[in-house]
């Protein structure tokens, strides 16, 4: 009985990881999944940034939910998200300049990530701050898992490295193996995401 209750409380956190994954089930946030997944490191930093923005904006909007005038609720959400994204961008520039250089405009584009607006509109406006927090973390992780999986394959086959370290032995290159330049281009991210969706659907059946 107690276990059931805990499970129920944690549903907003666990559901988005697989059953209701924002990327591969709801097909949201695809554009950034293409842009930052050529290498593993930017994908992870992007995940952390989205996690911070989504969890915090969910909590803030949830706290404000009873005061927001319905007619300007989207604008209010945008202002909150944009402010948080600017803060994340500034913090990255101050503390991890190298990575912020790599991610350049994509941090700014978190503002337009459909997952964030979607969760604010669908969840945070109607739920308590704590549930909204769990929902934010869950969805950001669900997004992050896909990002990391896609980046893993793209970096491995596209550059022969993982996290910047060479993993495909030099001997293979000497035998004529070549990196697949196609993996680095955005279309292969779509195809990789499509493969993940395929496996996921097979499993769900």
């Amino acid at each position: 009985m107690i276990m059931g209750n805990i499970r129920k409380r944690l549903e907003p956190l666990i559901n988005p990881l697989s059953n209701d994954n924002p990327v591969i089930v709801q097909i949201l946030g695809i554009c950034s999944a293409l842009a930052v997944t050529a290498k593993l490191q930017p994908a992870v930093v992007m995940t952390i940034s989205v996690l911070a923005v989504l969890a915090l904006s969910n909590v803030i909007i949830s706290l404000m939910r009873n005061t927001i005038p319905t007619s300007i609720r989207i604008i209010v959400q945008l202002v909150v998200v944009a402010a948080l994204v600017v803060v994340v961008d500034q913090v990255l520039k101050a503390w991890n300049y190298e990575v912020s250089k790599q991610l350049s405009v994509f941090i700014g584009l978190i503002i337009t990530n459909c997952i964030i607006m979607g969760r604010l509109e669908a969840f945070a406006l109607n739920n308590t701050p704590f549930d909204s927090f769990l929902d934010g973390v869950g969805n950001a992780l669900g997004y992050g898992i896909i990002l990391v999986i896609v980046a893993f394959f793209r970096e491995l086959f596209g550059s022969g490295t993982l996290w910047g370290f060479q993993v495909i032995p030099q001997a293979l290159y000497d035998m004529g193996y070549q990196n697949n330049g196609m993996m680095i281009l955005p279309p292969m991210a779509l195809i990789t995401v499509a493969c993940i969706i395929w496996f996921h659907n097979r499993k769900a059946k």
Partner: peptide
């Protein structure tokens, strides 16, 4: 560079 294509 600021934003040349990664890998290319």
């Amino acid at each position: 560079h600021q934003g040349e294509t990664p890998g290319l």
